[in-house]
């Protein structure tokens, strides 16, 4: 969820009441601790209030899960729910610390507290990366696609490249047999291919599909087909493959040499091949950033589940061994 000026009204509407609630609870706690001459624990009146509020917050936080699963019910707009999830979750940490009287206690309370803190930390991490990385990706990865379609789109790109070379240069004579295994390319005689094109929304530019006309480059047939065979592993698997175009700088030098080895007609084909490599490079970056952007959620959810179970156990043991 974004934290910016446009969302200020939404966030302040939740954050201020949450902060007030927390401050009131903590004020009671500080007052009782001063009265007792030491930080009181969960067995005190104010400590118990802090604990109950923190516990209810945990229950509410877990409510986001069914809210998402039952989104068709349109319970409450998700943005309100998520804003409350963020601010109440943050407020629950000081309340929980006050509740435990600033000491971890035995194994169960300590485990509970450690997991709870990790859960909060993972949530804060998620909030930060969600505010930073998407902006970065939008500005720096114009070829961004759907994460789980990266491999599929890469295969499409390789097919596009082959089709482009077939159109521009004709068959690769050294790989006659290979073409026989690709009947879909056999009869292609179109002089247009589909490649990425720049799209613009405000100051942000992205790429979309565009049909381009491919010039004839038959005299560079062997060179271009050889070049494609060298970069094809990279186009398919990205950094996982060892090719001369993995690194942007090396790729630039490699394509310069390729350009010098080809005629004038082949230059536009090379431009498209270089663009394809750049797109694949962006896919790799996108995949990495995507994992940064979403792995925390898996950890956060796992920790949340554990915290919810331990909360129930804690309530039971606290009432039994008060």
């Amino acid at each position: 969820m974004l934290l910016n000026r446009a969302q200020a009204k939404l966030h302040l509407g939740v954050a201020i009441p949450t902060a007030l609630l927390t401050l009131v609870c903590l004020a009671f706690y500080v007052r009782e601790s001063l009265e007792a001459g030491k930080p009181v624990g969960g067995g005190s009146g104010s400590g118990l209030i802090c604990g109950i509020v923190a516990g209810l917050v945990i229950v509410f936080e877990m409510g986001l899960w069914p809210r998402k699963a039952l989104r068709r019910l349109r319970l409450l707009p998700t943005k309100y729910w998520l804003a409350a999830h963020i601010w109440l979750g943050l407020a629950s940490l000081p309340l929980a610390i006050a509740h435990c009287g600033f000491h971890l206690g035995g194994w169960l309370p300590a485990t509970f507290m450690v997991l709870f803190v990790l859960c909060i930390v993972s949530g804060v991490y998620g909030l930060v990366v969600q505010n930073v990385l998407p902006r970065y990706m939008l500005r720096n990865l114009p070829s961004e696609t759907i994460y789980n379609q990266i491999d599929y789109v890469s295969e499409q790109t390789v097919k596009d490249a082959r089709q482009m070379l077939l159109t521009a240069c004709g068959r690769n004579l050294s790989r006659e047999q290979a073409f026989e295994e690709e009947p879909e390319l056999e009869g292609v005689s179109t002089h247009t291919i589909v490649i990425g094109a720049v799209r613009q929304a405000g100051r942000t530019r992205g790429r979309t599909l565009e049909t381009q006309r491919v010039p004839e480059a038959r005299e560079d047939r062997e060179t271009l087909w050889t070049a494609l065979s060298e970069i094809e592993p990279f186009l398919l698997r990205g950094d996982a493959a060892q090719t001369p175009v993995n690194n942007r700088q090396q790729a630039s030098q490699w394509f310069s040499r390729l350009r010098s080895a080809c005629s004038e007609d082949g230059q536009s084909v090379i431009d498209i091949l270089e663009g394809m490599c750049d797109q694949r490079r962006q896919f790799d970056i996108q995949a990495t950033l995507h994992r940064w952007l979403h792995t925390w959620l898996a950890i956060h959810v796992g920790l949340s589940v554990a915290v919810s179970v331990l909360l129930a156990v804690h309530v039971w043991t606290a009432l039994k061994y008060w």
Partner: peptide, 18 residues
């Protein structure tokens, strides 16, 4: 798959400890 694994670990780990 990683998320499912985390949920399973969190749930069954906490239940086992409980």
């Amino acid at each position: 798959r990683f998320r499912s694994l985390c949920v399973a670990i969190g749930l069954f780990g906490a239940l086992a400890y409980a």
